[in-house]
Simulated assay, not measured.
Amino acid sequence: MPNHPLKEPFAFLNQLQNNNNREWFNTHKDTYLKAHQQVIAFAEKLHQSLSKSDLIETPTGKKSLHRIYRDVRFSKDKTPYSTYFGGGFRRATALRRGGYYYHLEPHHTHVIGGFWGPNAADLLHIRKQIQLDPEPLREILDAAEFKLHFGQLLGARLKTYPRGFEADDPAIDLLRYKQFLIRHDFTEREVHSVDFHELVAEQFQNMRPFFDYMSDILSTDFNGEPLH
């Protein structure tokens, strides 16, 4: 049975979790570089698979990868390296909103899609569109396929209600969101499969009804006309 493509990267990460310091990392730099190349190869395959179902602005899988070196300047956690490999793909053009993120970590591998930090104008527009007609979003979130793959809508929420809206608004449960995220966690068996990149691309594709809805409301006015 062939080794899964992330076997060596995961073996490196398991060691890094117990040795997260510069001395150990520099001693094992060659191991890291080999693991990194294998993650790049995985990301390239993922980019190719994802590009079959969506238009991606990120030019290559390699360009999607985040650095393993942590910026600890403003963090209480001073460990210098991330103990996972992660990356993200940006959708192309203003008509395709949302971003895809993959997180590769032993026993915690998952993908996330959505809107991490909408600017104030976009967030207000999203809320007003949802307030006007919350049913399309509810239908997406209540669909059996959505619940199977993602469970529920995630993201930071206000404890009360946003300014300009009422606490008793029928859509207040949705209007409280400041982020709009969906997540799928993979089993170890899935992660260890030789075609894992296809499983990741499949879950990204399963995000499309949610992405298409959000893209539509962000690119149209309240009468459904295109925003200029």
Rank of each mutant, 00 (worst) to 15 (best):
N14M: 08
N14Q: 13
Q15M: 12
Q15N: 14
L16N: 06
N20R: 05
E23C: 06
F25N: 09
F25Y: 09
T27F: 14
H28C: 12
D30V: 15
A35D: 00
A35I: 05
Q37H: 08
Q38P: 10
Q38E: 13
Q38S: 12
K45N: 12
L46M: 07
H47I: 02
Q48M: 08
S49T: 10
S49Y: 07
S51H: 07
K52Q: 15
S53M: 12
S53L: 04
D54G: 05
I56R: 05
E57I: 02
T60C: 11
T60G: 10
T60I: 02
S64V: 00
H66F: 14
R67P: 13
I68V: 12
Y69T: 11
R70Q: 06
V72L: 07
V72K: 12
V72H: 07
V72W: 02
F74P: 14
S75D: 12
D77V: 06
D77T: 01
K78H: 10
T79A: 13
P80T: 01
P80V: 04
P80K: 01
S82C: 07
G86R: 09
G87L: 04
G87T: 00
G87Q: 02
G88M: 07
R90A: 12
R90S: 15
A92V: 00
T93H: 10
A94C: 09
L95Y: 10
R96I: 04
R96P: 11
G98S: 07
G98Q: 04
G99W: 00
Y102S: 02
Y102T: 03
H103W: 03
H103Y: 01
L104M: 02
H107M: 11
H108M: 07
H108G: 11
T109A: 10
H110A: 09
H110M: 13
V111E: 00
I112S: 14
G114T: 00
F115I: 03
F115H: 01
W116F: 03
P118Y: 02
P118S: 06
N119G: 11
D122G: 08
L123I: 00
R127Y: 06
R127H: 00
I130F: 03
Q131P: 07
Q131F: 02
D133V: 03
E135M: 13
E135L: 14
R138E: 05
E139Q: 15
E139T: 15
I140V: 09
D142R: 13
A144W: 00
A144G: 02
K147C: 05
H149D: 08
H149C: 06
